[in-house]
Design a protein around this nucleic acid. Sequence first.
DNA 1: TTGAAAGCGCTAACAG
DNA 2: CTGTTAGCGCTTTCAA
Lengths: 361, 361
Amino acid sequence: MSSQTDHAHRPGTRRPATISDVATMAGVSTATVSRVLNSNYPVAAATRERVVRAVTKLGYAANANARSLTQTGTGMIGVVVPEIVDPFFGYLIRGLEQAAADAGRLLIVSTTGSDPDREMALIDRMREHRVDAVIVISGALDDPSYRRRLAQCAESLDRMGSRLVLCAHPPLDPPTASRTVTYDNEGGAFAMTEHLISRGHRRIAFVGGVAGIPTIARRLDGYLRALTSRGIEPDETLIRTEGFGRRAGSAITKALIDEATGTTAILAVNDTVAAGVYEAIADAGLRIPADISVAAYDDTPLATDLSPKLTTVHVPLEQLGREALRAALADHDAFTRTPDDVVTLGTHLVHRDSVAGPPQS
Amino acid sequence: MSSQTDHAHRPGTRRPATISDVATMAGVSTATVSRVLNSNYPVAAATRERVVRAVTKLGYAANANARSLTQTGTGMIGVVVPEIVDPFFGYLIRGLEQAAADAGRLLIVSTTGSDPDREMALIDRMREHRVDAVIVISGALDDPSYRRRLAQCAESLDRMGSRLVLCAHPPLDPPTASRTVTYDNEGGAFAMTEHLISRGHRRIAFVGGVAGIPTIARRLDGYLRALTSRGIEPDETLIRTEGFGRRAGSAITKALIDEATGTTAILAVNDTVAAGVYEAIADAGLRIPADISVAAYDDTPLATDLSPKLTTVHVPLEQLGREALRAALADHDAFTRTPDDVVTLGTHLVHRDSVAGPPQS
DNA sequence: TTGAAAGCGCTAACAG
DNA sequence: CTGTTAGCGCTTTCAA
């Protein structure tokens, strides 16, 4: 405990130790400290020992921000998501998280409430932090102006050696400078509707969601295609994209029943909406699947919590997250960029207890 | 355009524009650019105009990492949480998120799966990134060695001008260099157990959880205190801290019923466990609350989704998150540090339809 | 109102 | 094997 280092070391100074604090204490140069810290260069065992001791004694933690100035990449990935308390996004983020942890990356996550402006602002914010990539899980309406803005973000990120990854979202028209990791919305809805039809249903309602959101639009497409391919004329009155959530599901279903639409099966836009559908059917004194069959989308845990257990389309949410992170990291500076940077994961039906044939009456 | 700036501007160069790129293009010094960017110093309108134009033309975004080298604080807050797809943590994080957004802060969030080692590693990682604070929402077992490690983290964060915030967790023994934002676990459990007793119940089971986790321990304390304060001898066989989750809730309840323990009321450790309790009671052909009353803790949306609607203890999760963020930011360099840095939020009972008196038989 | 220059903490040649 | 020396991109005195 000599007095050699009294230039800035009053105890209680709330300033993190720096590499030269360590160097001084260990009696070496900062270069040497850097070398033992990164162990990317030979250092004498004895020297290393002294440095390590100084590091622990000082509680030194290298400043990642300073480091990022000289190195390429910050090890941070931005995640922009509409909402956090929602199993859909939750599992997605869990997948991202896992993959990020495996890759030694940190995630900056932020929510937008599906507000496009906030989305853009956040992307910019993350750009300032020089994230290695920003992963956008959008829930925003998909008008052309929005796509244009997204494309601009992709451009500017790309220009600075970062990149935009679109997740659970259709690819940008020209996949300019962005990557996309998504899943088969249309196909799952098609398959489920097909299934309902093959069980004998003709009056199948499409319940929940908001028109204009890509996810919903694709699911509706699949529903429509299944109907027409089986020669069933889609009935506008059975298509009720009147909102998300349990509440919406139950309100719509109540209306469907009250209006005597002859609905014998319901394709709910997701499991949560299906929960509302269940409620309304029970309230009406009807039974699932005896009186009305119910099918849904997403296969969140809710599907098995409901009774009867819900037949639904499985979406590989966690895998989607992992793939998105892979896309965020892939060939960061290589030239092997595939022309169409889009990965599409498959979906499949999970048959449980909420679907049967239409009632005999 | 001219050829003045050909030193490093081949199009396609994947390197972000720097402040001196802007300066060159605007024909000013970097100092001036900095000044218009931060608008913390007078700049001639005309000059500012030129700079702004250059900024947008270049798509320049200031490097937050470089900036953090000269300024104090990074604007980033670390969040360490056991799990993300869980309404308890979900709402907590939502509160954090909101408050962070309001304060213009970004959140680095990472999950631990309740692994203390991973927790410490993450805190360290965030320390490297010089987060302004790290908020730990721990779910780890609370042995002394763990507390000691946490205290060390608090120390080292504090030493570098950052700080540790414990959220939904009891304060550290000496609140050394850390702040705590938590809520009244014991009180809520006490009140709910009291309520059950006043309804006439004597055989009240405590169902779910893991002994040793602070949250559960406190809830158990409250349960025990209510019992003894009413002169009811706690019965070991009714205390079943045999795991979290729906599955555990249903298994425990089944056992309780099969073993003819005479249980007339169940205090589930949280809403999810209660869902399992509901299931087992239905499976046994019994009814809630006619045959068995059920009460729980947390008041997540699940509570109203269940039928009958669940009587439960409300925990102000989002507010907890907001408070935690407030604690993370409060008087960063002032001297007004209160001696005991702990905020405790209250809980209250939410009476719904799952509690009645014990059956007559 | 603006610029020159030093320095934040770190890494990476380049010498020894 | 180790130290010196330039920067990395930005802010901030200090002069002009």
